[in-house]
Amino acid sequence: MSDNLQVLLLDDEPIVGRRLKPALAKIGCEVEVFEDPEEALARMAQQEFDVVVTDIRMDQIDGMQVLEFVRERWPRSKVIMITGYAMMSLAREAMEKGAFDFIAKPFKPDDLRKVIAKAAKALGSEIDFGAAEVDKANG
């Protein structure tokens, strides 16, 4: 495997994956996108990802269950929760269960990039934030 950051992105909204995959690729992440939590869990059972980005409110399997699974299977992985149903109680629950960060929808691509950069730093690898810096100037 390369020394790129391995990212798994799970959201049942297809557009999220379609947009974030290139956005994260720009800062040197290798992104696998899933819309179905079952498939994502199956994939994660096989392989460790550095960062897991997951939606919380999904049919069948809840993002919290994904979080619990990752924390147990790959304690080193950083899990970032993204949700449209952000509430204080949900945020605290996620943090307590070991989420690395919690982001409320809607967010900008840069918001996630910053968090992923932070996660990379916590994992001990620096991320080239060049692309994101350029955009900041635009915003």
């Binding site: 557009i15 947009r19 449209g84 929808k105 840069d110």
Partner: peptide
């Protein structure tokens, strides 16, 4: 309000990526 966040997020991400790229 919560449910709206999903389409809002899709619009936000798409618009930003369109602007960026």
């Amino acid at each position: 309000a919560h449910e709206l966040n999903n389409p809002m997020n899709n619009i936000t991400l798409t618009a930003h990526m369109l602007q960026e790229d």
